[in-house]
Amino acid sequence: MLLPACAIVAFFLLLPFVLSFPMSLTNRRLIPRPVRFVGFDNYIQVLTDPIFWRALFNVTYFTVLVVPVQCGFALAMALLINQKIPGRNFFRGALFLPAITSIAVVCVIWGTLFQYPTGPLNQIIGFLTFGLAGPIDWLGNPNSSMPAIVLLSAWQAYGFQMVVYLAGLQGIPGDLYEAARLDGASTWQRFRFVTWPGLRQTNIFVIIITTIQAFKLFTQVNILTQGGPRDSTVTVVQYMYSVGFVGQKLGLASAVAIILFFIVLVISLVQRAVLRDPK
C-alpha cells in the first residue's frame, strides 16, 4: 500500500532532483545528442550572465514589494472582517474569491485593467489626481512593469494570508483587549500593543511563506510580459525556462534550477530557525 506513492515520489520527484545535479555539469540538450562533461562551466556561465543577475535582482525587488503589500493588505482585510457584524462569513467568502482564481484568469482580468492609456487603473489615477498624473503604460514601461506584476500578484494571493491572519487574530485572548480597554487604550493603541505583538508568530509564518512563493514567480510574468520590457520582469524561473526550454540548454538550466533550490532551501532553514525560537 505504501509502494505506489513511494514509487511515484521516487520516480517523478527524487529521480529528477538527483539527476539534475550531474546534468548541471554537462552540456546536455533537450533533444538527444552526445553529452559531454563540462565541469562547473554551466555555473560559471550562469553566474557571469548579466541577465541571471537581473533576474535575481528582479525577484528580490518583487519580493521586497510584494511581501509588505500582500501581507499588509491581507492583515487589513482580516482586521476588517474580524468584527462583530452580520454577514461576516459572506464577506470572508467574497474576499477569498481571488485566491481560488487561476493566475491565467487573473492575467486576462488585469491585462485589461492595465490597458494603456484608457484602462480602468489609468482612469482612476487620472480622476484622483485631477488629470495631473498622466496615464501609465503599466506593462509596457520597464519602470512600472514589476510594480504592475506586484499588484496583480498581491490581489490574486492575499486571500491565503488573510485567513491565516484571521486565525491568528482569533488566537489572541479576548481578556487582553478587555484589559486594554479598561486602561483606556485607544483603537490604535489596542492594535499596537495587543494585536500586533499577538500576531508575532503569524507574521513570521506569513512573511516567510510569501517570500518563498515570491522567489518562484513565473506564471504571470510568462503570460503577460515574457520577462520584458527590457528584462525588467525576468525572474529566476522565467530565466530557467527560456534557457532550458526555449533555448533547449538543459545542462545550463539545471544549474539555474539547483541555484533556485538552494535559495528556497536557505529561506526554509531560516523559517525553521526563526519559528523554533520561542521568544
Binding site: 515520489v9 520516480f11 517523478f12 520527484l13 527524487l14 529521480l15 529528477p16 532532483f17 539527476l19 539534475s20 546534468m23 546536455r28 533537450l30 518563498i212 518562484k216 513565473f218 524561473v237 530557467m240 532550458g244 526550454f245 538543459l250 538550466a253 539545471s254 534550477a257 539547483i258 533556485l260 533550490f261 528556497v264 532551501l265 526554509s268
Partner: peptide
Amino acid sequence: MIGLYIVPQESIVLSLLNI
C-alpha cells in the same frame, strides 16, 4: 518525504521533462 517537500516543483521540472 518531509525532506523532499522543500524541493520546489520549479527546480525539477526540466529534469522531469527530460525523464
